[in-house]
Design a binder for these strands. Structure first.
Lengths: 232, 232
DNA sequence: GATCGATGCGTATGGGATACGCTTTTCAGC
DNA sequence: GCTGAAAAGCGTATCCCATACGCATCGATC
């Protein structure tokens, strides 16, 4: 099936129904996208080449282009496919807990698929998967009494924070020590006195640095709560 | 000058002094990096190719490799070079205002150099430029009475939010309308009822959606303030 | 069974990164 | 000044990648 519009909207939301005529396809967009995600998860996004992908699928390279307009579009579809189906959110009694679980789910997604971080920071059009996820949380938040427009702002805020905190390094252990490894050089300590002082102090409370996502998330929720309470 | 270690640490922090011997270089790493940044700013990161860059510099392609180990490393250097010199922060009387300006400065950087967003979400080692910026804010925060370790956590939190909010689309006008354009289709409205309800409501308070960075930043600062006050 | 329309895919093209090795240039030490 | 070590500059060749084009193939509809 050929895509007519070249915009992302057409790509993500366009009519994908097949006219009855013509040869039915063995390859499907879904298979292609799923395999590409598998490669990206296992070997990194830079290993997702049309050739490698076609080999895995047992097809010719150019066959892929019957189902996907190009490489860039494939990556966009890969991203949206990660959010196919509702997000796995535990039950909660307060909107604050819903947002807490939402934040953890979002960062969990990016930690499981680090290649998606890049896509998330550049996507321009919301796809059906992402729309489904957002719709789902908004439903939960609404049911717990959070006004609609505030709910959207809250979700966007938590989203932004989670996305920004999701740097690949965050996932690994001992990352902060590595991040600040340059301070081992005494000259660097003199060049960056405040930073050196701070990190020396902070290595005592190492926990904080390692868990800065949880720390920040709680702060974000505190801030949202304060704003929403003031509104009520 | 050839780089021995292939790690980012060596790249960013390694000894770059030149032994007296040998031909002095016309090209310098600084010139190369600066030109690459100029290309990325004007034409996008994907237009920064070794060939294009060499042409601009009036040199041969392979000459670049005498000063930079490879393309990936060049991009890392480009990123860090954006933070060469102290950040431009207005004077402020409270640590809250310092953090507010910090957040705006950081997102301003990413809005001015959208290609840097991708790098920021993947960088693993802090370079001298970034260290200088962080050291600078920490100095300001410390002078206004914020304890050192809390300052670092606060800066990291604001950083994460700014980075996550810095999607390229954020800069443009009318982006939220485009982002939700799929809701124009009545079928989508039925499929995503909560989202449809919310956005219909939200388009009344369009301001909020367009300025969600400012909104979120204030919430983050509220949350940090609450936590820090409770500590004191 | 003829036809139309879609699929599968081989080949060719143009670009990109970079390994290798040769040439050129400079300065340290004589 | 001369000489040679050391570093810079860079042309060539190689390999990988995305993708335009066109042809062969296949199935459902008529």
């Amino acid at each position: 099936m050929l895509l007519l519009g070249q915009g992302e909207y057409e790509l993500l939301w366009g009519d994908r129904s097949r006219p009855g005529r013509g040869r039915p396809s063995g390859l499907t967009r879904e298979r292609i996208v799923a395999e590409a995600v598998a490669i990206a998860d296992a070997e990194g996004l830079h290993k997702v080449s049309m050739k490698h992908l076609a080999d895995r699928l047992g097809s010719g390279v150019m066959s892929l282009y019957r189902h996907v307009p190009g490489k860039d579009e494939l990556v966009i579809l890969m991203y949206d496919s990660l959010m196919d189906g509702p997000p796995d959110l535990p039950d909660a009694d307060t909107w604050r807990d819903v947002l807490l679980h939402w934040g953890r789910t979002v960062i969990g997604l990016f930690r499981a698929h680090p290649w998606a971080i890049t896509v998330g920071t550049s996507a321009r059009t919301m796809g059906p998967g992402e729309a489904g996820w957002v719709d789902h949380v908004l439903g939960r938040l609404g049911a717990l009494g959070l006004p609609a427009d505030l709910g959207l702002m809250a979700v966007l805020t938590v989203d932004c924070f989670a996305l920004g905190a999701a740097r690949p390094e965050t996932g690994g252990a001992g990352s902060s020590a590595e991040f600040f490894s340059f301070l081992a050089d005494p000259a660097a300590g003199a060049r960056f006195p405040h930073l050196a002082a701070v990190t020396t102090a902070s290595f005592a409370s190492e926990q904080l640095l390692e868990d800065y996502f949880e720390f920040g998330l709680q702060r974000v929720l505190d801030g949202l709560e304060q704003y929403i309470d003031a509104r009520a």
